[in-house]
Design a protein around this nucleic acid. Structure first.
Lengths: 212, 212
DNA sequence: ACCTGAACACCGTTCAAGT
DNA sequence: ACCTGAACACCGTTCAAGT
């Protein structure tokens, strides 16, 4: 099995998911791959570039999401994003934390499709762009929020804390403890998505009226 | 000037904003503070704990945002979150990337206020929780998206790329180049916020009807 | 061409000791 | 009590050399 850039990046991703980012180093990766440390530098110019490669790999496994209506289009893209992120949660966190260096191509495709759907539905140019950005922000925040909530140190979430919470100071949190504790990330995600879809629909009909 | 935990963390935050996370190390911090390396360990148990302290400091400088209506309450909190994040953008990215370890107290206060506002407005228990989560996800994603877009390596954003883009493959992106290039993070943020507020209002009136 | 060991300048953390 | 230097086991990266 020859040493290839893709093989190195796959190994890095596996190691990240298995033991976390702090376990990854060029040296460790070399022993993991059974090759000399210096050999890696022929395929990956630096440790930084390695993580860029990982970030790339995560976004490039976001499947295309063609759909008929603009609602389905935006919802499907948001779900595809979330699915990809959940497939490699720890790698996804890395992706989010480093500004889109390359990754550009596949992101551009998504952007194109989303914009096309919204423009075809009748949204104005600036509103189409801003709506896509709002959906993107929501999807990113959801994924990262989930990752944070399900992280190893989840020992200090409101759920665990509220046991020793004075109801007088936090009446709502105390009262809604059951709802706050329940872990339904999927349903939470879909709820917010529907919120955004409905608001966009309202925007569309409002613009339709003012144009008519 | 004695060595205090708060002084160490402030110095770390300054250094992070000035030179980035990769410049921070216990050794570097010690020379920056003019003290011995080992002295730091009396106030900060480890390098990891140092970053937890930084994360804490960022969220604890989110100002309270009391407001009359539920709309103002949720909008004000989202803005306060964004303001705090923009005050220390690089530290904020660190905060987002590490699951809420402590940070709990001030986050809990925000949660309490948001829930109170939505419950008072008449939202059901599960919907109140999910609405707050949707707003939080949106705010988090917005802040992180902005940080990524304005990062040093912003050389590969659609804006720069689209110059050599075939309009045939990316008609929408080409056509909307002006809107996509324009950097108005504030307006983008407010747009999405209004979207969520309107959708929540619709939800409220829908629940009101079904309850009546 | 492709891989290697040895070296360099860094890390975080701990120890045993100083005042 | 508070601080210290020296040491240990790690890093990423580069060099000059091997096949």
């Amino acid at each position: 099995m020859p040493l290839r850039r893709s093989r190195i990046i796959s190994a890095a991703m596996e190691l990240i998911e298995r033991e976390g980012l702090e376990a990854v180093s060029m040296r460790r990766l070399a022993t993991e791959l059974g090759c000399g440390l210096v050999a890696l530098y022929s395929y990956v110019p630096s440790a930084e570039a390695l993580l860029d490669g990982v970030a790339d790999a995560v976004v490039s496994c976001i499947g295309p999401a063609p759909a008929a209506s603009w609602e389905d289009q935006l919802v499907a893209q948001a779900r595809a994003f979330r699915t990809a992120a959940r497939a490699h949660p720890r790698c996804a966190a890395i992706t989010a934390s480093r500004p889109a260096r390359s990754q550009a191509r596949s992101r551009l495709r998504s952007l194109e499709h989303a914009l096309a759907a919204l423009r075809a539905a009748g949204l104005s140019r600036p509103d189409a762009v801003r709506t896509v950005r709002a959906f993107a922000a929501y999807a990113l925040g959801s994924v990262l929020g989930e990752a944070g909530a399900s992280a190893p140190s989840a020992a200090s979430t409101p759920a665990t804390i509220h046991g020793r919470l004075e109801p007088a100071e936090f009446p709502q949190v105390t009262d809604l403890a059951a709802e706050l504790t329940r872990q339904e990330p999927e349903a939470d995600f879909e709820f917010g998505l529907r919120l955004l879809v409905r608001a966009t629909a309202a925007l569309l009909s409002a613009e339709g009226e003012s144009a008519a």
